[in-house]
Design a protein around this nucleic acid. Structure first.
Lengths: 230, 230
DNA sequence: TCGGGGTCGATACAGTGTATCGCTATGAGA
DNA sequence: TCTCATAGCGATACACTGTATCGACCCCGA
């Protein structure tokens, strides 16, 4: 073997730490979705063999947890907003922006308890905003309810986004979009209310839809706060 | 080779159809979760090779869609309940029971648009219940909002259920349950409202929590219906 | 300089979804 | 009834997954 056919020396291995691993995983997921995240590919990005990761993680699910917590940092508001309602609204909208930036987050949100530092910080922000406005149990219920709505709404939004993308830029044409299947279904007459809704419904953009539902839920919360802020 | 060591003849292959395939997949998922569903195992249950399934499915995701639609049949109420509120409540509770019977459903719900016959039937039921009580857009918004809450709440409920199961029957001891990690976090003093909430909060069972939040959301919907039923 | 201990990561394994394509079994034509 | 073409089925193969194992290497103490 001469110098000429000696293979390129491998790049010097990067010293690993959780932060770097998670950053690489997030980058991969942003580019190709959750399924593009494999321990081999993450390790390859760091010029390492797969097993090196196991010094810092014990399982792939743990990596997912760390990824979720990492991007949850983007949810925390930079400045404390005004009243409780504004706080919950801002957190919800920042959650939405984060999910749209990292679509894979929709697949993970709500799938496991979020106990990382950033996840706890988000919860802390919400609880602090409602602190003193009602008894602890009501406050907890409020945060849970709003959180449930946000997760469900964002999952649906991303699901629709992907479906539209997959069937080729189809916006409101539900029917044509998802192939003749749905059209045929609606034509059977077994779903009259649904058919009418599809026919009469206005096309509303996802953000408005999200905001409207959120306001409804926030109204519901407001009703349960016995001590409105002065 | 003699007759004695001739291997057992394979059982006669079952004639396949979608229904049988989906039933086998659902059974596997009920027993071992979504990860226990592999095309090979599903096929094995039907005494078939893996590729036989591809005559009836084109991809594994399609199988998941069919599984979701299959169990959604359990959500449809047997008898039409009274007013719109009762209808939405019943559908929500039946959804919850279905998710608890098939925990894997929590992983799939909201992940893709539900366009199967049963999924459409569920939507139809909800829309029909609200038909005429408000303009189409408001009705759609109402169904979406309630649906988002239900999906989010059930995902969290199942996530907590699994976490409790994994850390060994730990109920409300969040802190001890998830190891010293959360305890340490709370002890840092960075999450005062959260610490207080964990300390003061009453233990409420999941069903009550679900029902309470649901009632809040239904109240919010009621506010937007201009024409209350006579 | 030698020996021992501890860690790191290459190799190996059991399993995945699915593309490919040789075989078989059927049906038509003579 | 015999022959041949064809169409579809499913065994085999492939690329890839997460992770257990364990041999090799390196560093430190003697």
């Amino acid at each position: 073997m001469t110098v000429w056919d000696r293979p390129e020396p491998p790049p010097p291995p990067v010293p690993l730490d959780r932060e770097r691993i998670v950053a690489a995983a997030v980058a991969l997921a942003d580019e190709g979705g959750l399924t593009a995240v494999s321990l081999r590919k993450v390790a390859a990005r760091l010029n390492a063999g797969p097993m090196r990761l196991y010094g810092h993680l014990s399982t792939k699910d743990e990596l997912f947890d760390l990824m979720v917590d990492a991007v949850q940092a983007e949810i925390l508001p930079d400045t404390q907003p005004g009243d409780w309602r504004e706080t919950l609204r801002v957190v919800a909208h920042r959650t939405r922006r984060t999910v749209l930036r990292h679509e894979w987050l929709a697949d993970l949100l709500g799938g496991r308890p979020t106990l990382g530092p950033n996840g706890l910080a988000v919860t802390e922000t919400q609880l602090a905003a409602l602190d003193g406005l009602a008894d602890t149990d009501t406050v907890l219920r409020a945060v849970e309810t709003v959180g449930a709505y946000v997760i469900g709404a964002l999952r649906r939004e991303v699901a629709n986004l992907r479906a539209e993308r997959a069937t080729g830029l189809s916006k409101r044409d539900w029917q044509r979009a998802h192939g003749p299947h749905v059209t045929r279904m609606l034509a059977t007459g077994r779903f009259p209310a649904l058919a009418r809704a599809v026919h009469d419904g206005t096309e509303v953009d996802a953000e408005t839809s999200f905001t409207t539902g959120l306001d409804w839920v926030l109204d519901a919360v407001a009703t349960r706060l016995p001590r409105p802020p002065a």
